[in-house]
């Protein structure tokens, strides 16, 4: 995935079944953000892989004061990339015959 300067990682082991999964997001490179970034640390949250939209969560982070509105796209893309990877891994690990 593209290096957005915002890192999103799994915050729990993925059992491949749960739709809601714990993620952790933090800024690795503040220079890649458009707005001034206040170093708050890592943000832990849960994300529903089936029913939620990464950009909506990014917007909630903006409204909660973690990021400025001008960075909502970069945060949303970072979450989207990680979610896509998790879904791709799940598809690959579906046991044959299922």
């Amino acid at each position: 995935a593209e290096d957005t300067g915002v890192r999103v990682e799994l915050n729990e082991e993925d059992d491949g079944k749960k739709s809601s999964i714990a993620l952790k997001l933090w800024v690795e490179d503040p220079k890649k953000l458009k707005g001034k970034y206040k170093d708050t640390g890592a943000i832990e949250f849960t994300f529903d892989l089936v029913n939620e939209i990464p950009e909506v969560v990014a917007q909630e982070m903006v409204e909660s004061g973690f990021f400025l509105d001008c960075d909502v796209k970069i945060v949303g893309k970072s979450i989207r990339d990680r979610v896509a990877l998790i879904k791709w891994r799940r598809e690959r690990t579906v046991s044959p015959g299922n």
Binding site: G41, A42, T46, G65, F66
Partner: peptide
């Protein structure tokens, strides 16, 4: 502990914690 909780009006809970040092990008 350095953790803090922020609950968004939509009901989502964000927990702020320190970034693991090993995961910080090398400068």
């Amino acid at each position: 502990s350095a953790t803090a909780q922020v609950v968004h009006s939509a009901g989502r809970r964000f927990i702020v914690s320190p970034v693991p040092e090993a995961r910080l990008k090398e400068q």
